[in-house]
Write a protein that binds this DNA or RNA. Structure first.
Lengths: 124, 124
DNA sequence: CCTCTAGGTTGACAGATTTCAAAACAGCGT
DNA sequence: ACGCTGTTTTGAAATCTGTCAACCTAGAGG
């Protein structure tokens, strides 16, 4: 019943910072990282993520009315964001508060870092 | 017949650089950006992207054998990457070469930048 | 204990995604 | 012209996703 479902993505299990462009990512790492990108690959979740990331923390009750969607649908998207390890939630009395997991956020950023131009001399 | 299908994502149409965490992203921008994350949200495409981004350019014939998937399937994933605006392709004789679109890559990275702790005093 | 509100879970369904086999298309070499 | 190899397109099957209505759980307040 632990509502604090352990994130599917274990950040410590990931070679956490070599940029995608530094060297070909191996299949295992791709399997771990892809779900994080996938979680951001839906407009609703991307907005949700942005709203959460823009403040220290935010109540579901402030998230839901920003969309033209039912409560359960928002709840579903928040769950995916949680399972991807991107956000954390905490119940405090009546309300549930969400905040980002900075490590996850940082990792994603690191993955997309541009590492200059590697020299695999193809083009000429 | 133009195989150089115009990317679905028009990079110039995007408020191209304010980090997700800077302020809540509006619905329109989310609609434009989400497909890019979505494209990276599959392990195969993420690896493909990584392989392409790790070198100046790479031939499909070097991409395909890295996976346990049929040629058409790889081709399909490459098409999605192209449509997301993340990569470009060019046929040169018998082979087709892929390379990243640096602008798109940079934009994605910018989106995930951590902008310290913003003070959007909603909470207190 | 009862009721009210905030959120999450279940079940169902339309539409999208992943994948492959088969077929089409594009250059190259003979 | 013909066949060969590399890549994309088409068509179809199995699976996954986004969404809602209905229902359940958690805490607040009588």
């Amino acid at each position: 019943m632990s509502k604090q479902a352990l994130p599917v993505v274990d950040l410590n299990a990931v070679a956490c910072c070599s940029p995608i462009a530094a060297s070909p990512m191996d299949a295992d790492q791709a399997t771990v990282v892809a779900p994080m990108f996938k979680a951001l690959g839906d407009p609703v979740r991307l907005r949700l993520m942005s709203m959460i990331a823009s403040v220290p923390e935010i109540c579901v009750c402030d998230l839901t009315p920003a969309f033209d969607l039912s409560g359960p649908t928002i709840s579903h998207h928040l769950k995916l964001l949680r399972e991807a390890g991107l956000v954390d939630s905490e119940r405090r009395g009546t309300w549930v508060w969400y905040r980002v997991r900075p490590e996850a956020f940082r990792q994603l950023g690191a993955l997309l870092e541009v590492s200059s131009a590697p020299a695999a001399g193809g083009t000429a």
